[in-house]
Design a protein around this nucleic acid. Structure first.
Length: 321
DNA sequence: TCCATTTGACCTAG
DNA sequence: CTAGGTCAAATGGA
């Protein structure tokens, strides 16, 4: 509440529904752009269009979806605050990455009293990586905690991005040694890096390509059906993983929800994630056989590009209606 | 002095 | 109520 900027204050005069419809239109525009880029990409992939590289188009598509999600997130209710700050606010001084203050705001004021004030990320996106040795993913991490975990032999370490405070980067990770023999390191990533020191994202690609590890598991998790962010936020990472053919690596996409019955809901977000997951999987050579079918509808990874475009169109139609 | 890590307290979700 | 996630004071190393 106190976090409203002047700009948002001024917009409060217009009705909520007006704002929603404006955001909705912008979101649709973004999606339409994405669709256009996707069609171009299809042309590139089938050899009709040599002017633009598939990689450039992928970047554009990814950006389009990110913009869309930012728009949609910024239009959400006060209750549902985006995990991904809208682009314009990313490095604003007022944004410290902690949304939880609202829950602690009432009555308490001293900084000491605010210890532990946070909201546990119940629905945030996460992906897991298991490596035989401690994995340096190239980002600057700072350890902020360590806990003994029930039924686990080893403690779990908690890391956040070093740039959390100066750039509001909300990426965190947890590292825990498994009880395997030999022990492995299970790293669970939460959130995406929004900091500018993404200097090493290319390094991540290189690391993966060199793949000194005989194998690792990478699974993307979204525990919330609304959390389409999860999928899109990991977009760049998925792309990087997919780009380098590596027979040894095992990639598993998880799009599981806590409630099975939620799968029955024909949420557009969910559909979009599914189809694009399939789409991505088909992009990088033959990963079709690697894609483990967490979702039954996803096991058929042999859609033609046209089929996927049709599905994509359907989704957009759903949005427009 | 600065910065990263350690560690116990604190808070929330389940 | 408990387990897990986060905070921040204390501590240590460069």
């Amino acid at each position: 509440m106190e976090r409203h900027t002047d700009a948002t204050m001024s917009t409060m005069e217009c009705t909520w529904s007006e704002k929603i419809s404006g955001d909705r239109k912008r979101a649709i525009d973004e999606l339409l752009r994405g669709r256009s880029f996707t069609k171009q990409l299809r042309s590139v992939l089938v050899g009709e269009d040599q002017q633009e590289s598939a990689q450039d188009l992928l970047v554009k598509i990814s950006r389009s979806f990110t913009n869309t999600l930012s728009i949609l997130n910024s239009g959400e209710s006060d209750e549902a605050v985006s995990q991904i700050p809208a682009s314009g606010q990313l490095y604003s001084p007022g944004w410290h990455g902690r949304r939880s203050e609202e829950s602690c705001e009432s009555g308490k004021s001293s900084t000491k009293d605010r210890r532990g004030c946070y909201k546990r990320r119940k629905n945030s996106q996460s992906w897991v990586r298991i490596t035989p040795n401690f994995h340096d993913d190239g980002y600057a991490w700072r350890k902020y905690g360590q806990k003994v975990i029930l039924n686990a032999k080893h403690q779990r370490s908690y890391y956040r991005c070093t740039h959390k405070h100066d750039q509001g980067c909300m990426a965190t990770k947890q590292v825990q040694m498994t009880e395997d023999e030999p022990p492995k390191y299970k790293t669970t990533y939460h959130g995406q890096h929004t900091c500018k020191s993404m200097l090493k994202s290319s390094q991540i690609m290189v690391e993966n390509s060199t793949a000194r590890d005989s194998s690792f598991l990478l699974s993307f998790e979204s525990n919330n059906q609304d959390d389409s962010n999860a999928f899109f936020s990991s977009f760049p990472l998925i792309k990087q993983e997919e780009e380098i053919p590596n027979d040894d690596q095992e990639v598993t996409y998880n799009n599981h929800t806590n409630n099975n019955n939620k799968n029955n809901s024909s949420s557009s977000d969910y559909l979009l994630s599914l189809e694009l997951t399939t789409f991505e999987s088909n992009l990088g050579s033959d990963h079709g056989d690697v894609l483990s079918g967490v979702n039954s509808s996803c096991t058929d990874s042999t859609h033609s590009l046209d089929d996927m475009m049709m599905d994509f169109d359907d989704v957009l139609i759903g949005f427009e209606c």
